[in-house]
Simulated assay, not measured.
Amino acid sequence: MNNQILNPSLHGYEIHHDTCFGCGKENPIGLGADFTFDDQSGEVKFTYNFKKLFNGAPNFVHGGILSTVLDEAMGALCFHLGYIVMTDTMSFKFHKATPVQQEHLIRAWPVKKAKRKVILECELTSTDGQVLYVKGEGAFHILPPRFFSDKLTGGKIAVASELLAVNKLKRAHLFDRISNT
């Protein structure tokens, strides 16, 4: 790459390909979510307004869409922490029906890093955090670098590889706050 200093990623689309269902800006039927990393809290944290076309029951978001956005939030957090991952397991507790066409707060944070896994938690709430709609957890396999290819990044592999290295270096301290095994 060039000699400019690379800052850690802040948005999911900085690493993923442009047609990614979760964050791709060129996917007309995708979520188009930002998956923003918050350096102060050490988590993915952003607001999202579910379109009416994501209805399950009328005026409420389909559970599969909720699961998808939370899976993507946890996966994006892994990238922001410097890891190439694949979802291993996820579970969600749906506390209340989530209304469409209204802003919601989505958060994902690290819980533990094991030898080849990252364990995370996530939640979807009202923007003020007072109403909990969905709470979840996931385990993500850490993949070796050979899995990181042009297919995943949509041709951004050189930038994405360096960005992952910078993310891991600059954010390694976040795992000091949680238990490591």
Rank of each mutant, 00 (worst) to 15 (best):
Q4G: 01
N7V: 04
N7S: 13
G12Q: 05
Y13P: 01
E14R: 02
I15Q: 06
I15S: 09
E26A: 10
N27F: 03
N27L: 02
G30A: 04
L31G: 01
D39T: 10
D39W: 01
G42L: 04
V44R: 13
V44Q: 14
F50M: 07
K52F: 12
G63Q: 10
S67T: 10
S67I: 02
D71V: 07
E72W: 02
A73H: 12
H80I: 11
L81F: 05
L81I: 02
G82R: 01
G82N: 05
Y83P: 07
D88H: 10
H95G: 06
K96D: 08
T98G: 09
E103Y: 05
E103T: 09
H104Y: 14
I106G: 12
A108Y: 12
K112E: 15
K115P: 05
K117F: 15
L120A: 09
E121Y: 04
C122F: 06
S126M: 08
T127A: 10
T127C: 14
V131N: 09
Y133G: 09
V134I: 15
V134R: 11
V134C: 11
G136F: 07
E137Q: 15
E137F: 08
G138R: 04
G155K: 04
I157F: 03
A165Q: 13
A165C: 04
R171F: 01
A172P: 04
H173K: 07
F175E: 08
R177V: 01
S179K: 15
